[in-house]
Design a protein around this nucleic acid. Structure first.
Lengths: 349, 349
DNA sequence: CTCGCATCTGACAACGTTGTCCAGGCTCTA
DNA sequence: TAGAGCCTGGACAACGTTGTCAGATGCGAG
């Protein structure tokens, strides 16, 4: 059992033997501490014979370098943090995977957490990650005030916001063209003869939701259509609420003949509602989702490339770390309209 | 600018000012180092007035405690690692979310990474996390030999394997009842009159795949049906391969009248193949997936509760850390057959 | 056989924090 | 008023690693 660590053992109440340190390895191999460090880090200046002895000691003791200590000494942690809204939302799967790939390519680990759309939790998480001295942060904002990150950014934490812009702070942002995408999607419905078109979106305090709403209004205005209040639902997007909203705009004397759904969760709920009705109602959704093509009819969507969002953001983050980047920038990625049937249904009135 | 950190600044090439330390805060507040530590950690023994001065200094300097140093001193990191196969696979969304929730409830951060089903990458990741001194690991195994984790576990890293058992090592495991689930699913098809039932699953070196295959065989045998080789496909589950496999077993003189799909990716591909054909073929899939109920017909599945898998595993991990746990255990969670139509179609021959 | 040079090796401090322990000042009581 | 006891604050070492720098070792040449 390593000599130097017994006390810590008692302190932490660790039942198991504690970890060997470089000192232990050095003692066992009969070499100096720094020589072990050299071997572990592949630095030159160690004879093959010495190296062999050290490696044997490492294997025998099951030594593993303590990266906390290393970080403390070196300053950089080779890890970046990702804060997203919900790990379980399929939209974020490809995004976080893309971030991870880029991180990996730069030899960094990814630490991630979800804010559950709660600004306070976002801040708590972000600061916790900063306290662990991540080299950078990729943030999908839940809140709309990120001034709390200013000291961190000044201290050198590379920061990129994705999917939604940062609040009250000047920083790199990577977004989809939410406005243009929504406008195109709605224009697509108009081109197929619709005039009474509903919009079901998230709370407008969420930037993407506001932008998509703006796109909807723009398309309608371009076509000279006056939007009725009851065609729009702007609020929480839990299934119950969305269902009620959809049913309301589909009822009454002048029901909508088409619906534009503000995100994938909304789209799915609307699909369910429409499936229960006989009258054909056109539907275009923002965000693609798996199996959209297998439904009857296939669901026409405005697709964002979430992997590209993640990749772009992560690459930008590492360029900040390289020092090749100077001024914060706002990058907007295009969306793509994928027609599958539901958006091409004619008005049924 | 903090005095003590200038050198590190030069070393790391950090363009930004470096971070203030407790020493800097202490100097500014005109108190001792340890007093700052006490304030930061909410320890008693600081007069309100002193505390106020310290807090002012903290805010003025934008100080944030360096957790690396803290970890070095304290031994525990209050973080756990999660290694899964693919972040983007929807099956793992609820699982990782559940793990995160439990971690959060214990005040721990979650660090995760994906192995991309590559044993080497799994090991690399696991050891990297251990080097960062995570307190524990939740592993969805990609490889089948985890002896490399023995020194870590001896050193006190709590470890729980999920979804698939650990290889050549005695450890906690949380699994779904893959055997029973598959057997029930196939029995369900048999109960609806099918006798020629196909099975499309992953490579049998993957434990879950082997177990599900075993369940299939058991159900067939119980019904006195001899399984033909050409009814089974056991290999990679990329869409191309699955498609070919499905088409082969649906062709020929004695085509299968039902298919049991070994996981959600396979199921989706099979749904696509069946959608192109006129003859009705029954289908039961292992794993539930979103929108399964909206397809025509709805897809009958054997559902695992992936959130429960994650929750159970994480809770067990923290019980290991509490010291309340002694012997490794193997926990098997039940599956649930959800009938939606596709599994209740009669044979069409 | 000795000197000089190149190559290897190790002692030591520092990274920023926390645990230990003691000093000094205060209050309260006899 | 003196002594005891409590409370607050600070000096110091330690955590495990890496950078610096000087010392040791070995080899070849004169």
């Amino acid at each position: 059992m390593p000599e130097t660590t017994r006390r810590a053992d008692r302190l932490t109440g660790n039942r198991y033997g504690n970890r060997p340190t470089m000192k232990d390895v050095a003692a066992r191999a009969g070499v100096g501490l720094k020589t072990v460090s050299r071997v572990v880090n592949g630095e030159p200046g160690v004879t093959p014979d010495t190296e062999r002895r050290v490696r044997e000691a490492i294997d025998a003791l099951g030594f593993r370098r303590n990266d906390s200590a290393r970080v403390l000494r070196k300053g950089r942690t080779a890890s970046i943090g990702l804060i997203l809204e919900d790990l379980a939302d399929p939209f974020y799967g490809p995004l976080s995977r893309a971030v991870e790939e880029v991180a990996r390519a730069h030899g960094a680990l990814l630490i991630n957490g979800s804010s559950a759309e709660d600004p306070e939790r976002e801040q708590e998480l972000a600061l916790a990650l900063c306290a662990r001295r991540v080299d950078g942060l990729v943030v999908i904002p839940a809140g709309d005030d990120h001034r709390y990150l200013e000291p961190e950014m000044r201290a050198g934490v590379a920061t990129v916001f994705v999917d939604r812009p940062a609040g009250r702070i000047d920083a790199d942002v990577v977004l989809s063209d939410n406005y243009g995408g929504a406008r195109d999607g709605v224009a697509h419905l108009i081109a197929h003869g619709h005039r009474r078109i509903g919009f079901i979106g998230d709370m407008p305090r969420i930037h993407t939701a506001a932008e998509r709403l703006r796109g909807y209004r723009a398309a309608m205005e371009d076509a000279g259509i006056t939007v009725a209040e009851r065609w729009m639902s702007l609020g929480a997007t839990d299934p119950e609420r969305v269902r009620r909203a959809a049913e309301e705009m589909l009822a009454g004397p002048d029901p909508v003949t088409a619906v534009f759904a503000g995100n994938n969760r909304v789209t799915v709920t609307v699909v369910r509602v429409l499936a229960e009705r006989s009258r054909r109602v056109a539907l275009v959704g923002f965000d693609d989702f798996e199996l959209a093509d297998l439904l009857q009819p296939g669901v026409t969507v405005v697709a964002q490339d979430s992997a590209a969002l993640g990749r772009t953001a992560a690459e930008r983050l590492f360029r900040q770390l390289d020092g090749t980047l100077i001024a914060p920038e706002r990058i907007e990625l295009p969306t793509r309209l994928i027609t599958r049937g539901s958006g091409e249904l004619p008005p049924a009135d």
